Computed example of a mutant assay.
Amino acid sequence: MVKKQNQRKVLAVLAGGLVLGVGVAVTLAVWNDSEFATGTFTAGSFNLEGSTAGDVDANYSDHNVDDGDTAATLAFDLPADIVDNMSPGDAVYAGFWVRLAAGTTTGADLVAAGTTADPAVSSNSEHLGYAIYALAPGATCNAASAVGTPIATGATLDAQAGVTTVPLLEGATAAVAGTAVQLCFAVTADATLEQGLETTATWEFTATSTD
């Protein structure tokens, strides 16, 4: 009988040990760890500038009338005296250089974005047509170079058609401006040009970053 009682005690102790073992498993510590990452993002810079001379850096500036600047005045002086005394069939030419300013961090696509002109009732805007050409570096804007496919045309000064894109490259470093592209304007009077009227037109160009 004593032997059986001792056996029961042993079994009871073993049972208690099993219960204790389960209790240890439940109370084990749970470890966790975290990783964090942060990023800083700096926007690039972008600026299109123009010049009616194009040969010296100092000649370039902004001409954005939407921001309060004054539009660049094109020098239509080839051939001499015609621009102030145009007759039916005459054509005049003027160059305008555009480039991405120093500090610009991406290339761009340039397009002619529209034109405005004096009202036809008081000007010759309906009797003057135009074409704009992108010239090769070093070319002179005249009848000989204003050939090929224009980047924009207008049957009148207040119309625009045939728009094509001109690629612009940023400078090699942030301190250097991009390569300039000369736009050659050719304006031609039609056979019904009216005498004595003065007409002003303004063209807009938009550059959009490619990156």
Rank of each mutant, 00 (worst) to 15 (best):
G50C: 05
T140H: 12
G107H: 02
G95Y: 11
G68A: 11
G16H: 05
V13E: 06
E198D: 09
E35S: 15
F41Y: 08
G114R: 08
G44T: 07
A91Y: 00
L20N: 06
A94L: 03
F76D: 04
T149W: 02
L135K: 09
L14Q: 08
L110G: 04
L128T: 11
S209Y: 02
V10C: 01
S87L: 14
F185Q: 10
D81L: 15
T173P: 00
A143V: 10
N85L: 12
L157F: 11
G114H: 13
T192D: 11
L100R: 05
S145Q: 08
T200G: 01
L128K: 02
D190N: 14
P88V: 03
E198M: 08
V176A: 14
V22M: 12
N59W: 00
V56N: 08
S45N: 14
V30R: 13
E126K: 11
N32M: 00
A143M: 05
G154Y: 00
P88M: 04
A161M: 00
K3L: 15
P119Y: 12
G16L: 09
A53P: 00
G162W: 06
G50L: 04
S51N: 01
D158L: 13
D109V: 13
V30E: 12
E49H: 05
D62G: 04
T202Y: 01
I132H: 14
E49R: 06
T105G: 15
A201L: 03
D190M: 03
G178F: 11
V83G: 08
F46W: 00
S61E: 09
L78I: 07
G107A: 01
V111H: 03
G138R: 09
I132L: 12
V2G: 11
G178T: 09
A37Q: 11
T164M: 01
V19R: 06
T27G: 04
W203G: 10
F41M: 12
A136L: 08
V176C: 01
T40L: 11
V181H: 12
D33F: 12
V121D: 15
A161E: 07
V56A: 12
V10H: 00
A152D: 05
A175H: 03
A201W: 06
I132D: 13
A117S: 05
V166I: 08
L100P: 04
T165Q: 09
E194K: 10
L193A: 03
A143G: 14
E204A: 08
G16D: 04
L48I: 04
G68S: 05
D33Q: 10
A201I: 03
K9Q: 14
Q160P: 03
V19G: 01
V147L: 06
V111F: 08
A101W: 10
F96Q: 02
A201F: 06
I151Y: 13
A177Q: 01
G154D: 00
G114I: 09
G138P: 10
A80V: 14
G95I: 00
L135I: 01
F76N: 02
L28H: 09
A25C: 04
A37T: 14
D118L: 08
A136Q: 14
V65C: 03
N32D: 13
Y133N: 01
T210S: 13
A71V: 04
E194A: 14
V111Y: 02
T208A: 06
V65A: 13
T27Q: 14
A108I: 09
H127F: 00
S123N: 02
V2A: 15
N142A: 05
P137D: 07
G17P: 00
G54Y: 12
N64S: 05
A155Y: 03
V30A: 06
T38F: 06
